[in-house]
Amino acid sequence: MRRRESALRHLSARAGTLLLIASAAVALQTGTAHADDENPEGQPCIWYDPAPSMVISAGWQPVITHYAAFTIADGTAGERTDTLSITNTVTTTVAGSAEISNAGNAILKKVGVKVGFSVQTTKSTTSTESTTMRWSFNKPGHYGLFRGTRAATGIAQTYWCNGFFGTWARDARVVYTTYGYMETGTVSCAEPAPDWHDYTVRAQARRELDC
């Protein structure tokens, strides 16, 4: 019992900021994945076996983390370096903790399989990304510079070894957040507005450009 309580305290430690809250009953607008892990409940175990987990829900959405908008006048084509503002921050968390344990790492690895793209599985945050960007332009117009990613969030079920029965039993359900690789680019008002079902990071940046 003490081992179970210690594991629960570790998974429930509060550190960092949980920026995206997941609900088991609400799917994110862009994409969802349903758990197909093998349920370990009732399977034999020994107390020192690594505790398994199962991803119950997984969804993702595009998030613009760095952004800046500029208007380029006639006769000013060329290259320039600009500073982007941090508009959103995504941090890897498991059970509200930004310190990713071995158990948390195992959960986040399964998340990548669920959502269909690689995600961060260790302590990471988008706030450490560079805020400067060098870009070139050859036409006047209103432009947006962006950095962004796909943020994934959901719920995972953890398990503990019930020594009395020698089988895995349900433990806590934990909320997780992680994100994919960073994307960088420029958008302009000359580009058509994206379709409502286009949930790429670039499309999200175009929506945020005030045209």
Score class of each variant (00 low, 15 high):
Thr167Val: 09
Gly154Leu: 11
Ala58Thr: 01
Lys109Cys: 09
Thr149Lys: 04
Ala15Leu: 12
His142Ile: 05
Arg9Pro: 01
Asp198His: 12
Leu20Asp: 03
Ser6Phe: 12
Ser6Val: 14
Val174Asp: 00
Lys110Pro: 01
Pro140Trp: 06
Ser97Ile: 12
Leu18Pro: 01
Asp36Glu: 07
Val201Tyr: 00
Trp47Met: 06
Thr186Phe: 05
Ile72Met: 01
Asp36Ser: 07
Asp171Thr: 04
Tyr181Asn: 11
Leu18Met: 10
Leu18Thr: 15
Ala95Gly: 10
Asn102Trp: 12
Pro50Gln: 06
Glu129Trp: 13
Tyr143Leu: 02
Asp82Trp: 01
Glu183Ala: 15
Val94Cys: 02
Ala151Trp: 05
Ala193Cys: 09
Phe70Arg: 03
Arg9Thr: 05
Gly96Tyr: 12
Met182Ser: 05
Ile64Cys: 02
Glu41Asp: 00
Thr167Glu: 03
Asp171Trp: 10
Phe137Tyr: 14
Ser85Met: 06
Ala156Tyr: 03
Gly96Ala: 09
Gln43Val: 08
Lys109Val: 15
Thr200Ile: 10
Cys161Ser: 03
Thr121Met: 11
Ile100Thr: 01
Ala77Asp: 03
Ala25Arg: 15
Thr17Met: 12
Thr122Trp: 06
Trp168Gly: 00
Gly185Ala: 10
Tyr179Asp: 05
Trp168Phe: 06
His10Phe: 11
Lys109Asn: 14
Val187Asp: 00
Cys211His: 07
Ala103Lys: 13
Arg9Phe: 08
Phe165Val: 06
Ala103Trp: 13
Thr91Trp: 08
Thr65Arg: 10
Gly96Ser: 07
Ala13Val: 13
Pro192Arg: 12
Phe165Arg: 08
Ser118Leu: 15
Lys139Tyr: 09
Gly116Arg: 14
Ala33Leu: 11
Ile107Arg: 00
Arg206Pro: 01
Arg202Asp: 06
Glu99Tyr: 14
Arg80Met: 03
Ser124Leu: 04
Pro52Asn: 13
Ser57Val: 07
Ile155Phe: 08
Lys109Thr: 12
Ser127Thr: 14
Thr93Ile: 08
Thr167Pro: 02
Leu145Ala: 01
Ile64Asn: 00
Thr153Tyr: 08
Phe117Met: 15
Lys123Ile: 14
Pro192Trp: 12
Ala24Asn: 13
Thr32Cys: 08
Thr132Arg: 08
Cys189Lys: 05
Thr158Asn: 05
Tyr48Lys: 06
Ala69Gly: 05
Ala151Gly: 02
Gly42Val: 13
Met133Thr: 00
Ala190Val: 10
Thr126Val: 08
Val175Asp: 15
Ile46Gly: 10
Asn162Lys: 06
Ala25Ile: 09
Gly104Glu: 04
Ser57Phe: 04
Phe137Leu: 09
Thr153Met: 07
Thr89His: 12
Pro44Arg: 04
Ile56Cys: 04
His66Val: 03
Ala27Arg: 15
Pro40Ile: 08
Phe117Trp: 15
Asp195Gly: 15
Ala169Leu: 05
Pro62Gly: 02
Tyr181Met: 13
Ala169His: 03
Asp36Val: 13
Val187Tyr: 00
Tyr143Lys: 00
Lys114Met: 13
Ala106Asp: 14
Thr184Phe: 14
Ser53Pro: 08
Met1Asn: 11
His34Leu: 15
Ile100Arg: 00
Tyr199Trp: 14
Ser53Trp: 06
Gln204Asp: 03
Glu79Tyr: 08
Ala25Trp: 15
